[in-house]
């Protein structure tokens, strides 16, 4: 009896395995359930992270360059991890001209989820570094409008990006087209990101996250966009600290240490605020961000507002006077 039952289980499990493999083949026109067998020629490893790796690849059928993000799955005894299901499902729902397109998803039973994205040749970080910075005011405005359009779209779907920074803003150089990339994994991976002390990771992080608040929302992305805005104008990150505490101090030096009046709720969020941080008076954004027209400076100040509840939304930002001539900008660039 025991042997008989065991044979039966083994038999239909094997049958199911063949069925799964056959389905994946027919579904993806020859895609194999293998880490590298997705009809892609791997050209180089572009990035390595704790969650997996990023490859530059060539699509064998179309000849197009693509980016493949290979995510390592953990705790496989209980099937596909929940964060991956949520994240990939989410990416599948994002359809916007300014968001990088997820072309297809490949799965291997053993270890990886392979996400294949369209490839763009450049990112805003390299754009700023290699060109000094885009002094062209119209380019800054066009880029800002596209970034905010993508963010407003995501927020309308109640999706947060969580990790907006210049290297996650891709550029189709010939068209001056912006596409947001690298939506971070949510759930159990979020904590890893929140507390990473890697250099540069805290420079675009909203003060409510730097305060270790677990209650945050769409406003965190607007702070990041504000930091990107300032960086495009001045050619370097606004506050370049080596850890979260120093980043927060740099922000307070710039905008003033918050009080219950300027940020209602701050004394509850940070009871020891005035023990750990000196009481700075605001230096003012205009001191640091020169060469930005007054309406741009006004918009920037509404993005870099310490109090999340008073920070401007992406949707409202798109209607700001700074963008009053955006159609002309688009026409000029085309």
């Amino acid at each position: 009896m025991w042997n008989e039952e065991s044979d039966w289980i083994g038999s239909f499990d094997s049958q199911l395995a063949r069925l799964a493999e056959c389905r994946m083949c027919s579904r993806d026109r020859g895609e194999r359930p293998d880490a590298t067998g997705m009809d892609l020629e791997v050209l180089e490893v572009a990035e390595e992270g704790s969650y997996g790796r990023v490859f530059r690849c060539l699509d064998i059928h179309t000849g197009a360059l693509v980016t493949m993000k290979q995510i390592t799955m953990v705790r496989l005894s209980q099937g596909v991890p929940a964060p991956i299901i949520r994240e990939v499902s989410l990416l599948k729902e994002l359809h916007h001209a300014n968001i990088v397109k997820l072309l297809r998803v490949g799965l291997t039973e053993n270890r990886y989820v392979n996400l294949v994205f369209e490839h763009l040749d450049y990112d805003l970080h390299h754009f700023i570094v290699n060109r000094g910075y885009p002094k062209d005011a119209l380019t800054v405005k066009s880029f800002m409008y596209q970034i905010l359009s993508a963010v407003a779209y995501c927020h309308s779907l109640k999706v947060l990006h969580r990790d907006l920074k210049p290297s996650n803003v891709l550029i189709d150089h010939s068209k001056r087209l912006i596409k947001l990339a690298d939506f971070r994994l949510a759930g159990e991976f979020a904590d890893d990101l929140l507390y990473t002390e890697k250099l540069g990771t805290s420079w675009y992080r909203a003060p409510e996250i730097l305060c270790d608040s677990r209650q945050y929302s769409t406003q965190i992305d607007l702070w990041s966009v504000g930091c990107i805005f300032a960086e495009m104008v001045i050619g370097q990150p606004l506050v370049q600290a080596i850890n979260c505490r120093d980043e927060l101090e740099g922000i307070f030096k710039l905008l003033g240490t918050p009080t219950e009046e300027t940020w209602p709720g701050i004394t509850k969020l940070m009871p020891n605020l005035h023990i750990y941080y000196p009481k700075f008076d605001a230096l003012g954004l205009e001191t640091f961000v020169t060469d930005l027209e007054p309406s741009g400076l006004n918009l920037l100040s509404m993005m870099l507002c310490l109090d999340p509840s008073r920070r401007i939304s992406a949707e409202a930002a798109l209607k700001h006077a700074y963008f009053i001539d955006v159609n002309y900008v688009s026409l000029l660039l085309l």
Partner: peptide, 24 residues
């Protein structure tokens, strides 16, 4: 069950959202 999960995800094209929940 794990293999079937993979089969279902692939078959449905990873389109698992009916109503978009708050993602945080």
């Amino acid at each position: 069950v794990k293999r079937m999960e993979i089969l279902v995800l692939s078959t449905l094209g990873w389109k698992m959202i009916l109503v978009t929940p708050l993602h945080s």
